[in-house]
Write a protein that binds this DNA or RNA. Sequence first.
DNA 1: TCTGGGGTCCTAGGACCC
DNA 2: TCTGGGGTCCTAGGACCC
Length: 419
Amino acid sequence: MFALIDCNNFYASCERVFRPDLNGKPIVVLSNNDGCVIARSNEAKALGIPMGAPAFEYEAVFKQHKIHVFSANFPLYGDLSHRVMTLLGEFSPEIEIYSIDEAFLKLTGFDYYDLQAYGNEMLQRVTKGTGIPISVGIAPTKALAKVANRIAKKYPKETKGTYIIDTEEKRLKALKWLAVEDIWGIGRKHAARLRLQGVKTALDFTQLSDAWVQKSMSIVGLRLKRDLEGKPTLDLEALKVKKNIATTRSFEKTLTELDQLKERVATFAVTAAEKLRKQKSCCKAISVFVHTNGFRQDLPQYAQNTYAKLPYPTNSSIELAQFAQQALERIYRKGFQYKKAGVILVDILPENQVQQSLFENSNPKHISLMQTLDDLNQRFGQQKIKLAVQDQKRVWKMKQEKLSPRYTTSLKDIITIKV
DNA sequence: TCTGGGGTCCTAGGACCC
DNA sequence: TCTGGGGTCCTAGGACCC
């Protein structure tokens, strides 16, 4: 059996951990730059706030219903996620951390366990240990565990947060209940196509012919079908090193000058390089893009990206910042108001598999330099040590007007208790 | 009239996830 | 005025190899 554990309204729940006064109150969390809604508590969902709602359009609604609005606080969410995963890891030797708020556990050898009780135990442990509410779905395959989890979440009272699909009868009932567009792995496009075929539920989907599914949805669709049929097809996946590493941001105010963009792109390259070194990799190529605000059709639009093979593999912030700036110069055009830019490191390989070249290599001194840089930044705070090309005056601040404290990752934000 | 067979690598585009 | 960010996998087709 597989268990899928999913944190309920994760970001909103994180904001409540140190603010118990917000229990039962509507909460939304905004994306970077306080742009749009990326998480909602149940109360906010009930008020009809959609996912992705632009914050400026909903300001009046937030006010009217006294909705508590937060800027995204990713250090807090990342830390609480880590705590949740650590606790879940106690429940099975085999765990796959699927996303920041979800994990699969493989329950091999649990035949004589009361899984309902086991799910309840997970729930108690995580709630007590972190304050984050979770739902547990248990079933013979990953796709069915996803379905079971959905049921647990939808009917918290009846299921007490844990639902198990362990009989053919329950499987059929669950699949009949699940709308085709809500199946894990079926997105908007496929759902629309399936609807045209008369497929309304997950059960209908499993009754299509293998050939049709494979032809129109590739092997991915076929695997999913088998998994939903209760034939274990998808297995736990090991933690993999990333094949792409991106740092991209929208700007609060548009930029027009090359120098301004160069500073941003250098900073993005530095951030991406830090992530690259963290997984002990180098990259052989880089991609840089810029674009104007696509929502402003009244302004001249420009969007361009470029891909550059590097002369040698590297993970040095200094070298990558230089290459990123050179790439930017090739695509920059004067006369546009730029809204967003990004750096994506591609062609990633482990740093111990880098081929030395006879002619040109990454500066070997940068290895210890980057190590020192990372150590200092780790100790004294993110990007305390910067490159000279980066903004020294902190001109570029993200719009984060409703940021909560970093309760668990910053000593100065730690809560004080008055006795 | 008739023109082999079996591969790999790369890229763009499409689909999906959280 | 204001609209997020970061990933994965699969397929088809072209170029190329022996």
